[in-house]
Amino acid sequence: MISKEEVRHIAKLARLGINQEEEKFSKELSLILDYIEKLKEVDVKNVKPTSYSGKIENITRKDTEAQKSEKTSKLLELFPDRKKRFLKTKQIF
């Protein structure tokens, strides 16, 4: 069972604004988690975890200077708020 207090804590970790939905989330998440509890039946002793299918490791590329491209200006245009080429935001500290 996920308490309303826990819901508020998770929402804060997730940086997700919730509006008086503690009750709803508490109910829904508890139901889903109850279902997921099923995994506890499985004996996973000495089993290695899989994070990706297939064998992929150490993929590298040359550390070259990024080229200024048309893409850059398109990305800049997507900023909600900016000053010239700088992203504008509320003060952080």
Binding site: I2, E6, V7, I10, A11, L13, A14, L16, I18, F25, E28, L29, I32, L33, I36, L39, K40, V42, V44, V47, K48, P49, T50, S51
Partner: peptide, 30 residues
């Protein structure tokens, strides 16, 4: 989407990572 963000954040949060995410990755191997 909000529901899944909440669920995922919970499963990865301190104290629950081993019980949920790591265990699921092991079941994935099986």
């Amino acid at each position: 989407v909000r529901r899944r963000i909440m669920l995922g954040t919970y499963a990865l949060s301190a104290g629950y990572y081993d019980a949920y995410y790591l265990r699921a990755q092991k079941v994935r191997t099986l």
